[in-house]
Amino acid sequence: MNVTLVSRYFNPRNGGVGTVSEATLETLKLDKNINVKTFSMNNSILSFEGDINRFHHLDYLFFSLFETPIKIRSNLYKNTDVFHALSPIEALYLNKNKTVVTVHDLMLMTMPKMIHTGIFAKSYGYYFKKTLNKAIKSKEIIAISDESAGALANHYNLNIEELHVVRDPLRKNLYTMKNKHLNTDDKFTIGTIAHLNKRKRVNLLLKAFLKADIKNSQLLIGGTGNQLDYLKKMANGDKRVKFLGFVPDEDLNSFYNSLDVFVYPSLMEGYGLPIVEAMACSVPSITLNDAYIPKDLKTRTVQASRENLSNILNEKFFDVDIKSNLEFVKEHSHETICKQLNNIYKMVLE
Protein backbone atom coordinates (compact mmCIF):
# COMPACT_ATOMS: atom_id res chain seq x y z
CA MET A 1 0.00 0.00 0.00
CA ASN A 2 1.43 3.39 -1.01
CA VAL A 3 0.57 6.10 1.52
CA THR A 4 1.47 9.78 1.26
CA LEU A 5 1.39 11.78 4.48
CA VAL A 6 0.62 15.45 3.85
CA SER A 7 1.51 18.01 6.52
CA ARG A 8 3.06 21.43 6.96
CA TYR A 9 6.14 19.95 8.61
CA PHE A 10 7.67 16.73 9.85
CA ASN A 11 9.88 18.32 12.46
CA PRO A 12 9.25 18.89 16.22
CA ARG A 13 11.00 22.25 16.00
CA ASN A 14 7.86 23.49 14.25
CA GLY A 15 5.61 22.95 17.27
CA GLY A 16 2.77 20.50 17.80
CA VAL A 17 2.00 20.04 14.11
CA GLY A 18 5.56 19.00 13.35
CA THR A 19 5.81 16.78 16.43
CA VAL A 20 2.67 14.77 15.69
CA SER A 21 3.47 14.54 11.98
CA GLU A 22 6.95 13.18 12.63
CA ALA A 23 5.61 10.66 15.16
CA THR A 24 2.93 9.53 12.68
CA LEU A 25 5.58 9.03 10.02
CA GLU A 26 7.69 6.92 12.40
CA THR A 27 4.55 4.97 13.36
CA LEU A 28 3.78 3.94 9.78
CA LYS A 29 7.34 2.77 9.21
CA LEU A 30 6.56 -0.14 11.54
CA ASP A 31 4.28 -1.68 8.91
CA LYS A 32 6.35 -3.35 6.18
CA ASN A 33 3.27 -3.46 3.95
CA ILE A 34 3.07 0.34 3.85
CA ASN A 35 5.32 2.34 1.56
CA VAL A 36 5.13 5.84 3.03
CA LYS A 37 6.09 9.13 1.40
CA THR A 38 5.75 12.66 2.74
CA PHE A 39 4.58 15.93 1.23
CA SER A 40 5.30 19.08 3.24
CA MET A 41 6.73 22.57 3.14
CA ASN A 42 10.09 20.89 2.91
CA ASN A 43 9.05 20.37 -0.72
CA SER A 44 8.49 24.11 -1.13
CA ILE A 45 10.70 26.57 -2.97
CA LEU A 46 10.23 28.67 0.18
CA SER A 47 11.35 25.79 2.41
CA PHE A 48 12.46 26.69 5.92
CA GLU A 49 11.56 23.56 7.84
CA GLY A 50 13.11 23.55 11.31
CA ASP A 51 13.01 27.32 11.80
CA ILE A 52 9.74 27.95 13.65
CA ASN A 53 10.62 31.59 14.27
CA ARG A 54 10.67 32.30 10.54
CA PHE A 55 7.16 30.95 9.90
CA HIS A 56 5.11 33.38 7.86
CA HIS A 57 1.46 32.96 6.95
CA LEU A 58 2.01 34.21 3.39
CA ASP A 59 4.69 31.56 2.79
CA TYR A 60 2.31 28.84 3.95
CA LEU A 61 -0.61 30.20 1.91
CA PHE A 62 1.61 30.31 -1.18
CA PHE A 63 2.62 26.70 -0.62
CA SER A 64 -0.93 25.59 0.16
CA LEU A 65 -2.75 27.44 -2.62
CA PHE A 66 -0.26 27.43 -5.50
CA GLU A 67 2.50 24.85 -5.07
CA THR A 68 0.46 22.01 -3.59
CA PRO A 69 -2.09 21.53 -6.42
CA ILE A 70 0.74 21.32 -8.95
CA LYS A 71 3.23 19.18 -7.05
CA ILE A 72 0.76 16.76 -5.45
CA ARG A 73 -0.26 15.69 -8.98
CA SER A 74 3.33 15.12 -10.10
CA ASN A 75 4.74 11.73 -11.09
CA LEU A 76 6.28 11.39 -7.63
CA TYR A 77 2.84 10.91 -6.08
CA LYS A 78 0.83 9.41 -8.95
CA ASN A 79 1.01 5.89 -7.49
CA THR A 80 -0.38 6.93 -4.11
CA ASP A 81 -3.17 4.64 -2.92
CA VAL A 82 -4.06 6.69 0.15
CA PHE A 83 -3.38 10.32 0.97
CA HIS A 84 -3.45 11.11 4.69
CA ALA A 85 -3.82 14.83 5.35
CA LEU A 86 -2.69 15.53 8.90
CA SER A 87 -4.84 18.66 9.06
CA PRO A 88 -7.87 19.86 7.05
CA ILE A 89 -5.91 22.58 5.23
CA GLU A 90 -3.66 19.92 3.72
CA ALA A 91 -6.68 18.10 2.25
CA LEU A 92 -7.77 21.00 0.05
CA TYR A 93 -6.41 19.68 -3.26
CA LEU A 94 -6.39 15.96 -2.56
CA ASN A 95 -8.64 13.42 -4.27
CA LYS A 96 -11.42 13.00 -1.69
CA ASN A 97 -11.96 9.36 -2.69
CA LYS A 98 -8.38 8.51 -1.78
CA THR A 99 -8.03 10.75 1.27
CA VAL A 100 -8.02 10.29 5.02
CA VAL A 101 -8.02 13.56 6.97
CA THR A 102 -7.16 14.12 10.62
CA VAL A 103 -9.02 16.90 12.44
CA HIS A 104 -7.33 17.93 15.68
CA ASP A 105 -9.77 20.61 16.80
CA LEU A 106 -11.90 23.52 15.60
CA MET A 107 -9.96 26.25 17.39
CA LEU A 108 -9.06 28.14 14.22
CA MET A 109 -12.81 28.60 13.72
CA THR A 110 -13.91 29.11 17.31
CA MET A 111 -11.00 31.16 18.70
CA PRO A 112 -8.65 32.21 15.86
CA LYS A 113 -7.07 35.05 17.85
CA MET A 114 -5.77 32.50 20.36
CA ILE A 115 -3.94 30.72 17.55
CA HIS A 116 -2.72 33.59 15.37
CA THR A 117 -2.29 37.24 16.18
CA GLY A 118 -2.59 40.41 14.13
CA ILE A 119 -4.37 40.90 10.84
CA PHE A 120 -4.05 37.22 9.89
CA ALA A 121 -6.13 35.82 12.75
CA LYS A 122 -9.55 36.35 11.19
CA SER A 123 -8.48 35.50 7.64
CA TYR A 124 -6.73 32.33 8.79
CA GLY A 125 -9.89 31.25 10.60
CA TYR A 126 -11.88 31.86 7.43
CA TYR A 127 -9.40 29.87 5.34
CA PHE A 128 -9.49 26.98 7.82
CA LYS A 129 -13.29 26.93 7.69
CA LYS A 130 -13.26 26.79 3.90
CA THR A 131 -10.75 23.95 3.80
CA LEU A 132 -12.60 22.03 6.51
CA ASN A 133 -15.77 22.24 4.41
CA LYS A 134 -13.85 20.36 1.72
CA ALA A 135 -11.99 18.05 4.11
CA ILE A 136 -15.16 16.56 5.65
CA LYS A 137 -15.97 15.12 2.23
CA SER A 138 -12.89 12.89 2.45
CA LYS A 139 -13.35 9.12 2.33
CA GLU A 140 -12.47 8.71 6.01
CA ILE A 141 -12.23 11.24 8.84
CA ILE A 142 -10.11 10.92 11.98
CA ALA A 143 -10.56 12.96 15.16
CA ILE A 144 -7.93 12.80 17.90
CA SER A 145 -10.36 12.72 20.82
CA ASP A 146 -14.00 12.03 21.61
CA GLU A 147 -14.47 15.76 22.19
CA SER A 148 -13.05 16.68 18.79
CA ALA A 149 -15.23 14.03 17.14
CA GLY A 150 -18.31 15.36 18.93
CA ALA A 151 -17.59 18.96 18.00
CA LEU A 152 -17.02 18.02 14.36
CA ALA A 153 -20.18 15.89 14.19
CA ASN A 154 -22.30 18.60 15.80
CA HIS A 155 -20.94 21.45 13.69
CA TYR A 156 -21.36 19.63 10.38
CA ASN A 157 -24.25 17.31 11.25
CA LEU A 158 -22.09 14.24 10.65
CA ASN A 159 -22.78 10.74 11.92
CA ILE A 160 -20.35 10.43 14.83
CA GLU A 161 -20.35 6.65 14.42
CA GLU A 162 -18.66 7.09 11.05
CA LEU A 163 -15.80 9.11 12.49
CA HIS A 164 -12.63 7.42 13.73
CA VAL A 165 -11.03 8.44 17.01
CA VAL A 166 -7.28 7.85 16.86
CA ARG A 167 -5.05 9.36 19.51
CA ASP A 168 -1.88 11.21 18.62
CA PRO A 169 1.12 8.87 18.74
CA LEU A 170 3.67 9.44 21.49
CA ARG A 171 7.25 10.25 20.63
CA LYS A 172 9.68 7.39 21.16
CA ASN A 173 12.14 7.00 24.03
CA LEU A 174 9.96 8.46 26.78
CA TYR A 175 10.09 6.29 29.89
CA THR A 176 10.58 6.42 33.66
CA MET A 177 14.28 6.62 34.47
CA LYS A 178 15.63 4.73 37.46
CA ASN A 179 17.76 7.67 38.53
CA LYS A 180 15.30 10.53 38.34
CA HIS A 181 16.16 14.13 39.31
CA LEU A 182 19.91 13.67 38.68
CA ASN A 183 20.34 17.18 37.29
CA THR A 184 18.16 19.13 39.72
CA ASP A 185 20.42 19.32 42.82
CA ASP A 186 17.60 17.94 45.00
CA LYS A 187 15.49 21.00 44.26
CA PHE A 188 11.73 20.73 44.09
CA THR A 189 11.35 21.05 40.33
CA ILE A 190 8.26 22.28 38.49
CA GLY A 191 8.21 22.26 34.72
CA THR A 192 6.26 22.98 31.60
CA ILE A 193 6.93 22.76 27.88
CA ALA A 194 4.91 24.43 25.14
CA HIS A 195 4.95 26.81 22.22
CA LEU A 196 4.96 29.99 24.27
CA ASN A 197 1.91 31.82 23.00
CA LYS A 198 -1.13 33.41 24.63
CA ARG A 199 -3.26 30.25 24.58
CA LYS A 200 -0.71 28.24 26.56
CA ARG A 201 -1.01 30.68 29.52
CA VAL A 202 2.47 29.95 30.90
CA ASN A 203 2.25 33.39 32.55
CA LEU A 204 -0.30 31.93 35.00
CA LEU A 205 2.15 29.22 36.03
CA LEU A 206 4.99 31.71 36.38
CA LYS A 207 2.82 34.00 38.50
CA ALA A 208 1.78 31.10 40.76
CA PHE A 209 5.38 29.93 41.14
CA LEU A 210 6.61 33.36 42.17
CA LYS A 211 3.72 33.73 44.59
CA ALA A 212 4.31 30.29 46.13
CA ASP A 213 7.94 31.18 46.88
CA ILE A 214 8.84 27.55 47.66
CA LYS A 215 12.17 27.00 49.36
CA ASN A 216 14.82 25.18 47.33
CA SER A 217 12.68 25.09 44.19
CA GLN A 218 12.97 25.90 40.51
CA LEU A 219 10.72 26.32 37.49
CA LEU A 220 11.85 24.96 34.12
CA ILE A 221 10.14 26.45 31.06
CA GLY A 222 10.80 24.67 27.78
CA GLY A 223 9.85 26.06 24.39
CA THR A 224 9.97 29.20 22.29
CA GLY A 225 7.30 31.55 21.00
CA ASN A 226 6.10 35.13 20.82
CA GLN A 227 5.57 35.40 24.59
CA LEU A 228 9.14 34.44 25.53
CA ASP A 229 10.34 38.01 26.08
CA TYR A 230 7.19 38.86 28.03
CA LEU A 231 7.72 35.87 30.33
CA LYS A 232 11.39 36.71 30.86
CA LYS A 233 10.42 40.24 31.81
CA MET A 234 7.80 38.85 34.18
CA ALA A 235 10.44 36.59 35.82
CA ASN A 236 12.49 39.73 36.46
CA GLY A 237 15.81 37.90 36.64
CA ASP A 238 14.69 35.37 39.27
CA LYS A 239 17.41 32.71 39.07
CA ARG A 240 14.95 29.98 40.10
CA VAL A 241 13.20 30.39 36.74
CA LYS A 242 15.10 28.76 33.89
CA PHE A 243 14.13 29.24 30.25
CA LEU A 244 15.39 26.21 28.34
CA GLY A 245 14.41 27.20 24.81
CA PHE A 246 13.60 24.42 22.38
CA VAL A 247 14.11 21.01 24.00
CA PRO A 248 15.27 18.50 21.34
CA ASP A 249 13.96 14.93 21.31
CA GLU A 250 17.20 13.52 22.68
CA ASP A 251 16.85 15.69 25.82
CA LEU A 252 13.11 15.34 26.29
CA ASN A 253 13.16 12.23 28.48
CA SER A 254 15.73 13.78 30.83
CA PHE A 255 13.62 16.95 31.02
CA TYR A 256 10.45 15.15 32.12
CA ASN A 257 12.33 12.87 34.51
CA SER A 258 13.91 15.87 36.21
CA LEU A 259 10.47 17.11 37.30
CA ASP A 260 8.52 16.58 40.50
CA VAL A 261 5.41 17.91 38.79
CA PHE A 262 4.47 18.98 35.27
CA VAL A 263 2.07 21.90 34.85
CA TYR A 264 0.12 22.46 31.64
CA PRO A 265 -1.92 25.68 32.05
CA SER A 266 -3.16 25.83 28.44
CA LEU A 267 -6.65 27.25 27.91
CA MET A 268 -7.67 24.84 25.17
CA GLU A 269 -6.20 21.79 23.45
CA GLY A 270 -7.42 19.43 20.80
CA TYR A 271 -5.56 16.84 22.84
CA GLY A 272 -2.63 17.90 25.05
CA LEU A 273 0.10 15.39 24.24
CA PRO A 274 2.72 16.86 26.64
CA ILE A 275 0.53 15.63 29.51
CA VAL A 276 0.83 12.09 28.15
CA GLU A 277 4.59 12.57 27.72
CA ALA A 278 4.85 13.45 31.40
CA MET A 279 2.71 10.40 32.29
CA ALA A 280 5.14 8.18 30.37
CA CYS A 281 7.87 9.36 32.74
CA SER A 282 5.70 8.79 35.86
CA VAL A 283 5.40 12.52 36.50
CA PRO A 284 2.09 13.88 37.91
CA SER A 285 0.50 16.75 35.99
CA ILE A 286 -1.55 19.79 36.91
CA THR A 287 -4.08 21.44 34.60
CA LEU A 288 -6.37 24.41 35.25
CA ASN A 289 -10.02 23.62 35.86
CA ASP A 290 -11.24 26.18 33.30
CA ALA A 291 -9.23 24.52 30.51
CA TYR A 292 -10.88 22.81 27.55
CA ILE A 293 -8.84 19.60 27.44
CA PRO A 294 -10.18 16.13 26.56
CA LYS A 295 -11.71 14.42 29.57
CA ASP A 296 -9.52 11.32 29.16
CA LEU A 297 -6.49 13.46 29.94
CA LYS A 298 -7.87 16.07 32.29
CA THR A 299 -9.30 13.55 34.76
CA ARG A 300 -5.83 12.04 35.08
CA THR A 301 -4.36 15.33 36.32
CA VAL A 302 -4.66 17.46 39.43
CA GLN A 303 -7.07 20.26 38.54
CA ALA A 304 -6.35 23.66 40.00
CA SER A 305 -7.95 27.06 39.78
CA ARG A 306 -5.92 30.13 38.97
CA GLU A 307 -6.32 31.20 42.58
CA ASN A 308 -5.18 27.99 44.27
CA LEU A 309 -2.42 26.87 41.89
CA SER A 310 0.27 28.40 44.09
CA ASN A 311 -1.17 26.62 47.16
CA ILE A 312 -1.21 23.26 45.38
CA LEU A 313 2.43 23.75 44.37
CA ASN A 314 3.29 24.60 47.96
CA GLU A 315 1.56 21.53 49.36
CA LYS A 316 3.57 19.21 47.07
CA PHE A 317 0.82 16.58 47.14
CA PHE A 318 -0.38 15.48 43.73
CA ASP A 319 -3.11 12.86 43.91
CA VAL A 320 -2.88 11.04 40.59
CA ASP A 321 -2.79 7.33 39.81
CA ILE A 322 0.65 6.88 38.27
CA LYS A 323 0.12 3.18 37.54
CA SER A 324 -3.18 3.79 35.76
CA ASN A 325 -1.62 6.66 33.82
CA LEU A 326 1.17 4.40 32.57
CA GLU A 327 -1.45 1.98 31.24
CA PHE A 328 -3.18 4.88 29.50
CA VAL A 329 0.12 5.83 27.86
CA LYS A 330 0.16 2.47 26.05
CA GLU A 331 -2.87 3.59 24.03
CA HIS A 332 -0.52 6.10 22.33
CA SER A 333 2.14 3.59 21.34
CA HIS A 334 3.37 3.45 17.76
CA GLU A 335 2.25 -0.17 17.50
CA THR A 336 -1.32 0.63 18.59
CA ILE A 337 -1.67 3.68 16.33
CA CYS A 338 -0.12 1.86 13.37
CA LYS A 339 -2.76 -0.89 13.53
CA GLN A 340 -5.57 1.65 13.76
CA LEU A 341 -4.31 3.68 10.80
CA ASN A 342 -3.72 0.55 8.72
CA ASN A 343 -7.35 -0.51 9.22
CA ILE A 344 -8.59 2.94 8.20
CA TYR A 345 -6.39 3.01 5.08
CA LYS A 346 -7.81 -0.38 4.05
CA MET A 347 -11.31 1.11 4.29
CA VAL A 348 -10.28 3.71 1.70
CA LEU A 349 -9.27 0.94 -0.70
CA GLU A 350 -12.53 -1.00 -0.34
Rank of each mutant, 00 (worst) to 15 (best):
K129W: 09
D251Q: 15
K211C: 02
V36F: 01
L46N: 13
A23F: 06
F246R: 00
D186C: 03
F39E: 07
K233A: 03
M177T: 13
K130G: 01
H164A: 05
N75T: 06
D168L: 14
K295M: 12
K242V: 14
L28P: 08
I144A: 01
I293K: 02
I221R: 04
L94E: 05
S333K: 04
K29V: 07
T110V: 00
E161H: 12
F246M: 08
F10Q: 07
V20H: 07
E250F: 10
H84Q: 15
G150Y: 09
S44F: 07
E350T: 13
L196A: 09
F55G: 04
Q218V: 09
D249F: 12
L30A: 02
L206M: 03
A278M: 08
D185H: 15
F63A: 09
D296H: 08
R300F: 06
K198V: 14
Y292P: 09
D186E: 12
H332A: 10
K330H: 01
L252E: 03
K298P: 10
S40V: 01
T38D: 08
N173C: 08
Y127G: 03
P88H: 09
D321W: 11
L326V: 02
K113D: 15
N197R: 11
G237P: 03
S138L: 07
E250D: 15
P69V: 11
K71F: 14
L30G: 02
L297M: 06
P274D: 05
F48D: 13
H57A: 14
V6W: 08
N311R: 12
N79R: 06
V3P: 06
N97V: 01
L65D: 14
T68I: 05
F66I: 15
V20P: 05
I286H: 03
N342L: 13
L204R: 13
G245N: 01
G223A: 09
A91Y: 00
G225V: 10
M347I: 14
N253P: 00
L182I: 14
Y230D: 13
F243C: 04
H84Y: 13
I142M: 04
I45S: 09
C338R: 07
V302A: 00
T224I: 15
N236D: 15
R306Y: 11
K29P: 01
L132A: 11
A208Q: 01
G18D: 05
T189M: 02
S44Q: 01
P274E: 12
N179D: 13
